[in-house]
Amino acid sequence: MGLNVYLSGEIHTDWREQIIEGAQGLDLTFTAPVTDHAASDDCGVAILGAEPDKFWHDRKGALMNAIRTRKGIEDADVVVVRFGDKYKQWNAAFDAGYAAALGKSLVILQPEAHDHALKEVDAAALAVARTPEQVVGLLRYVLTGALPD
């Protein structure tokens, strides 16, 4: 039994790489949004043309990124959403809500300091993890039934 896992959320740390590395040997396929911040912000105007107003500049990029995000979440068996320490990650909260609305198995990865702010998001999740290693352990358990050593 293989699983498709979509890794959403914070793009400023290497949490995705930690999960992918830790899950080596497991029957998992990982997908994610574009994590190059500049490319994600500017894809719309770079491909579809310049916009003089920043709102429309951002909107073009957001709509193009939504194509990838929707496909990744819709195809996923498990959606992992990371909320990091820096920045307000509204897009991560939106992805978590979209995944929950689709009935996806949702795992939230967040520091304890976010527990109160994310209580509704956490309530929609099947698990709340604190570290990438916990996410790997969860995925290993789901696939194999094996507990960590």
Rank of each mutant, 00 (worst) to 15 (best):
L3N: 02
Y6Q: 10
S8V: 01
S8D: 03
I11E: 04
H12G: 15
T13A: 09
T13P: 04
D14Y: 07
D14P: 08
E17W: 15
E17Y: 09
Q18D: 05
Q18H: 08
I19T: 07
I19R: 01
I20V: 11
I20P: 03
Q24H: 13
T29M: 12
F30W: 04
F30D: 02
P33H: 02
V34N: 14
V34K: 12
V34T: 08
T35A: 12
A38V: 08
A38R: 13
A39P: 00
S40N: 07
V45D: 06
L48N: 10
A50S: 13
P52D: 09
F55N: 05
F55C: 04
W56S: 05
H57Q: 07
R59N: 15
A62K: 06
A62I: 03
L63R: 02
M64T: 06
K71W: 12
G72F: 01
G72D: 02
G72V: 03
G72I: 00
E74A: 15
A76S: 10
A76C: 08
A76L: 06
A76K: 06
D77Y: 03
D77C: 01
V79G: 03
K88L: 14
Q89A: 13
Q89V: 11
Q89K: 09
N91R: 09
A92P: 02
A92N: 03
A93S: 12
A93V: 10
F94W: 11
D95A: 00
G97A: 08
Y98G: 00
Y98S: 04
A99V: 01
A100H: 06
L102F: 03
G103D: 00
L106D: 01
L109R: 05
Q110P: 00
Q110Y: 03
Q110K: 13
P111C: 05
E112I: 06
A113S: 03
D115H: 02
A117L: 12
E120D: 12
V121Q: 08
V121C: 05
D122F: 13
A123D: 12
A124E: 15
A124T: 15
A129W: 02
A129E: 11
E133M: 05
E133A: 10
V135G: 06
V135R: 01
V135D: 06
L138R: 11
L139Y: 03
R140G: 08
T144W: 10
A146T: 10
P148C: 01
D149H: 14
